[in-house]
Simulated assay, not measured.
Amino acid sequence: MEEQVDRLVKKIWARFESAPATSRLLIGISGIPGSGKTSLATVMTDRVNALYANEYPGRPLVATFVPMDGYHLTRAQLAAMPDPAHAAARRGAEFTFDGDKFLQLVKRLRETLTPSTPTVYAPSFDHAVKDPVEDDIPILPTSRVIFFEGNYLSLDKEPWKSAAHLMDELWFVEADFETARKRLIKRHVKAGIAKDEEEANKRALQNDLVNGRQIVDHRLPVQEVIISKEDPAWSHE
């Protein structure tokens, strides 16, 4: 795993150094739930920022991590759907995200950087209240390497497809479904999404891995496939 990360860091650093100062480098990292994509995005952001701080001490950090979690539809929006019980049970499925809103963010970040470029804000997700928090992730004009992470960033369906085409790179973190299931059980119990392992397993099988099948079966071509393995360095997801 460490060798994969080292290679990817070198690749992105080389692309960043050769890119015009007026542009951003956008990388979309996708994978099935529990694959380790959040961990990869976090590690990549940290490593690129460490390189930048070493090369350009004193300057604002250059890399930012934007998770797709903030683009969940709110519980109120799910409750307003024709079948609110189904929508709530399937939260995390593609139709329970605001893909159009995410596309608008990507379009804005794709614009040419100028001295008057403002800070752009993305939403985060508060697991305590189980809803997005608007304008919670600042993306500074100096943030020129953006790592996006989310289930549907390489999905061959609009509006995700349009957002994917605006990325400089699409990466896919590949994990077998059984490994993902075990990770999801631990995560759901820890986050309070499920009261116990039995409930967490049911959610993983009936929702998360159903979504995972769509993600795998309808994936756009990607530039990198990263094989997910257990690694102490990947402890974020």
Rank of each mutant, 00 (worst) to 15 (best):
A79N: 15
M81W: 13
M81N: 07
M81A: 08
M81S: 11
P82K: 01
P82S: 09
P84E: 08
A85Q: 14
A88S: 14
A89V: 12
A89E: 10
R91W: 03
R91Y: 05
R91H: 14
R91I: 08
E94D: 11
F95L: 10
F95E: 15
K101H: 10
K101C: 12
L103C: 09
Q104P: 06
Q104I: 06
L105H: 13
K107F: 05
K107D: 07
L109T: 05
R110Q: 12
L113V: 04
T114R: 09
P115R: 13
T117G: 11
P118A: 05
V120P: 02
S124V: 15
A128E: 12
V129D: 14
K130Q: 11
D131Y: 09
D131E: 09
D131M: 12
P132W: 00
E134K: 14
D136C: 15
I137R: 13
I137K: 12
P138V: 05
I139F: 09
I139C: 06
L140V: 06
P141M: 04
T142D: 07
R144E: 10
R144I: 11
R144G: 13
V145E: 11
V145W: 05
F147R: 04
G150Y: 01
G150S: 10
G150D: 03
G150V: 04
Y152M: 03
L153D: 01
S154W: 00
S154C: 03
L155I: 01
D156Y: 00
K157M: 02
E158A: 13
E158G: 06
S162Q: 07
A163Q: 09
A163P: 03
H165A: 01
L166A: 08
M167E: 04
D168A: 01
E169S: 02
E169Q: 04
E169M: 00
F172L: 00
A175V: 07
A175T: 07
F177G: 09
F177K: 14
T179I: 04
T179V: 08
A180D: 05
R181H: 12
R181C: 08
R183Y: 02
L184F: 02
L184E: 08
I185V: 12
R187Y: 10
K190Y: 15
K190A: 15
A194D: 05
K195T: 14
K195W: 14
D196L: 02
D196H: 07
E197S: 15
E197N: 15
E198N: 11
K202P: 00
R203K: 12
L205C: 15
L205N: 11
Q206C: 13
V210Q: 07
N211E: 08
R213P: 13
Q214M: 10
I215K: 01
V216G: 06
V216T: 13
D217Y: 00
H218E: 03
R219P: 01
V222Q: 00
Q223E: 11
V225A: 01
V225N: 03
